[in-house]
Design a protein around this nucleic acid. Structure first.
Lengths: 339, 339
DNA sequence: TTGAAAGCGCTAACAG
DNA sequence: CTGTTAGCGCTTTCAA
């Protein structure tokens, strides 16, 4: 690849001038002609600034890392797309890492920033990273923004409007006439789970109903866990006529379990899930969901991170635009006995 | 972060000695004691080699990029995991890119290698990248290994054993007693599609049957395309009693379309898909699939790439170990009228 | 308006 | 067995 020195030589200027015109130094005054010569030379030689040289000089890599626990769900694609687009918009490159490689002590983090490979992180915690481990990792580190969940002392995070999502899903069932509504939620200590459950509870209260512990399960978001939860739910008496599942992937598992248990959906039980993904349109019956703005979580997160890296204060935001949106498909209907 | 010079000072040695012990220079002879002092100092200062300095010096980034067209399918997770593991095993970092950002002229590639951010690529072509564009991109470039598909003049690629996969899927139907077997394949010019169709044809011939064009569709791997294909297939007369779908995601779409068309699966039609992913167990009925070794494609690809970058000759391989494996679930059964 | 030169952190050739 | 030093490509201060 061509180097700056070659460009300079070809354009008949010094490297410093070449550098300044190519980086678009604002307070540089060149005669247009000189400028043009440099630009032309760069184009002719197909110049691309060597990144290591620049990074070394500036002590800044212009790269960010997105660290996620699970890459096998389509939801992740939205998060990634949002983050990548926002990074690109500010001329940064986005790397991807998995948080299951994040051993205690923050090895991955240390390696990546320690080596100067990235300037900062967008981190989606894995549920098996303990709160303490997370806190100590994030602790005041200006180079980390948390997505989806957040820690007690917030210093950079972006989360979905989980309570609105939980409420919307529950209200949908309520408006269909359901009164016995169950929740298949996330695992106990997760703040995401807590917020979605809050929305569920709020909606129930709004309808003059109260939450019955017998109808809430907190086993986590995996299809298998939700499947187990669904089965156990159907053996309560009376069983619920509607269930809100706090995650699509869980809902897909729940659907399978419900059907295997002999239930007709939505004839006997309605199911609504939080989050949407393409597969939801291809389950049987097609799954009614609440679509959440995960793309925006990704893009806002890098926006925050970049602002923070530029010296700004930490921010913590809830993505409310676009708001959670109900996508009605075939898994919800009025409860048995109601027209 | 601590620099090499600091380590050296602290250990009371020169930077060159420090560098050599820390990089594990094999033909370096130090007295153990000196070595230990350096190692200790590095540990105390929590030293991590600055990557830009090293990259600049060595003109090697020790990073590779994996470029894929679609990140929203769980299949991709396997490819990524394989590639990431293999990269880590050789002490390289893996970046992720999407090939839809690969504009004509290889902008992304130019940017990434041009800038020296990565040493090479593992590239999964997107179907809307034309053959010519691909050829010109890959053309003799020692820094690129193609996965899943390959070009006419092969110079670095790793593909699945697609013909074995196609054959296995078809033979499964055959062994169940099916004789009218359709194929929902990939899009015409794709070499993957061609190989899978070959396997289908081979199996048919092996059973003394011949391929009927009326029963093959080549619309691509998306759920929607396969759904359309499935519908049109059922209106042939006689309709097929079994269909092999050349991709799981397509099969999921086909299942939906078939059911919407009023077919009972597997009562009226059996469906078997090539590739496996977790959602296949949660469709209705659960999908019978042929599991392919996509993880190994990823890991072999980086192995090849690294070997090539180290000066080795280009290699083109077909992953046959583990071989395609049938995962029987509920979407296949003997054809109507057969016990 | 332009150029010379220092220095970011590292490795490796060479010298001792 | 260990140290000195040049130089990778770049930005930026300072001087002209």
């Amino acid at each position: 690849m061509a180097t700056l020195a070659e460009i300079a030589r070809r354009a008949g200027v010094s490297v410093s001038v070449a550098s300044r015109v190519l980086t678009g130094d604002p307070n540089l005054r060149t005669r247009p002609e000189t400028r043009d010569r440099v630009v032309l030379a760069a184009k002719e030689l197909n110049y691309t600034a060597n990144y290591a040289g620049r990074a070394l000089r500036l002590a800044r890599s212009r790269a960010l890392a997105l660290i996620v626990p699970d890459v096998s769900t389509p939801l992740f694609a939205d998060l990634l797309a949002g983050a990548a687009d926002a990074a690109a918009a500010q001329d940064h490159t986005l790397l991807l890492g998995r948080s299951d490689r994040m051993t205690a002590g923050g090895d991955l983090v240390r390696r990546l920033v320690g080596e100067g490979r990235v300037d900062g992180f967008v981190l989606q915690r894995s549920d098996d990273l303990s709160d303490r481990a997370l806190e100590s990792l994030v602790a005041n580190d200006a180079r980390i923004v948390l997505v989806a969940s957040r820690t007690a002392h917030r210093r950079g995070s972006v989360v979905l409007d989980d309570v609105a999502g939980g409420r919307l899903a529950t209200e949908h069932l309520l408006s269909l006439g359901h009164r016995r509504i169950a929740l298949i939620g996330g695992v106990e200590p997760s703040d995401i789970a807590r917020r979605r459950e809050q929305g569920y509870t709020d909606a129930l209260h709004g309808a003059g109903l109260k939450k019955r512990e017998a109808w809430v399960r907190r086993l986590g978001y995996s299809p298998d866990a939700a499947a187990r939860a669904a089965s156990s739910l159907m053996s309560t008496s009376p069983p619920p006529t509607g269930v809100v599942v706090a995650n699509v992937n869980g809902a897909i598992g729940a659907l399978t379990a419900l059907r295997l248990g002999g239930a007709d959906i939505p004839g006997d039980v309605s199911v609504v899930a939080i989050h949407d993904q393409w597969m939801a349109a291809h389950t049987w019956p097609p799954l009614t969901t609440v679509k959440m703005a995960f793309y925006e979580v990704g893009s806002e997160a890098v926006r925050l991170l970049l602002a923070r890296l530029a010296g700004g204060p930490p921010e913590d935001i809830v993505v409310t635009d676009p708001p959670p949106r109900l996508v009605v498909r075939g898994s919800t209907a009025p409860p048995p006995g109601v027209a």
